[in-house]
């Protein structure tokens, strides 16, 4: 049934309708920690897109060509997290060697990414939805760009918030959460547009 799903649908559903931060609550730690500053948000966002897409492709292949044929589905969690962790390390080395400019731009975010739940979540969900390889990649792009969108959106808002007159107790994180709630309300309005 899912095989008939249009890849455009998959992308928009993952990107907006089921936005990983606003609707699925994932990636919140780094979301709160990093979105104070526009420049680092963009860096982190791009790094997450890059790693998610690659890591999802690899873990999809590992699951379907290694774990399933040998009936090792119970090793899913362990293998996925290790795949992601080692892939992030590997990527860091490659980027540092081959593209020093790129490494300067977002290299410092790479080690943080291993524990970003967006990546693992999109690997798990891609398996749960029984996607084929292409759908899985599109889904990963959608999920991670959704994270990118949310984090950049927030960085720009929080930069403004710093100068806003707020009650002392609400400064910083509390108001960030309340605003996330309001923006999440907007995202909720997209529900029903694209189904997954």
């Amino acid at each position: 049934m899912l095989n008939e799903l249009n890849i455009g649908y998959i992308f928009l559903s993952a990107f907006i309708v089921n936005n990983i931060v606003m609707i699925k609550f994932l990636g919140l730690c780094s979301f709160v920690g990093i979105s104070t500053n526009m420049k680092s948000s963009i860096g982190m966002g791009i790094a997450v897109v890059f790693v998610t897409v690659m890591a999802c492709g690899i873990s999809w292949a590992v699951y379907n060509y290694l774990l399933i044929p040998f009936h090792l589905e119970y090793l899913r969690t362990v293998t996925f997290i290790l795949t992601i962790a080692s892939f992030v390390q590997f990527e860091e080395i490659i980027i540092r060697k081959k593209a020093p400019a790129l490494y300067k731009a977002f290299g410092i975010y790479l080690p943080l990414i291993t524990t970003n739940c967006v990546i693992l979540a999109s690997a798990f969900l891609g398996i749960d939805y029984k996607f084929n390889f292409l759908q899985n990649i599109i889904f990963a792009i959608g999920v991670s760009s959704g994270y990118c969108l949310a984090i950049i959106l927030f960085a720009s808002m929080r930069e403004k918030l710093d100068t806003a007159p707020l009650p002392e107790s609400f400064r910083g994180i509390p108001i960030a959460f309340i605003m996330t709630g309001l923006v999440s309300l907007v995202f909720l309005g997209f529900k029903g547009l694209f189904k997954l």
Partner: peptide
């Protein structure tokens, strides 16, 4: 209803954090 939907979660934790800041001091 909004409370059991995603926005409710963000609002509740936002207000709880503010409350914590208020009673627990800075």
């Amino acid at each position: 209803l909004i409370m059991i939907m995603p926005p409710g979660a963000f609002l509740v934790i936002g207000f709880l954090m503010a409350l914590k800041n208020n009673i627990g001091g800075k």
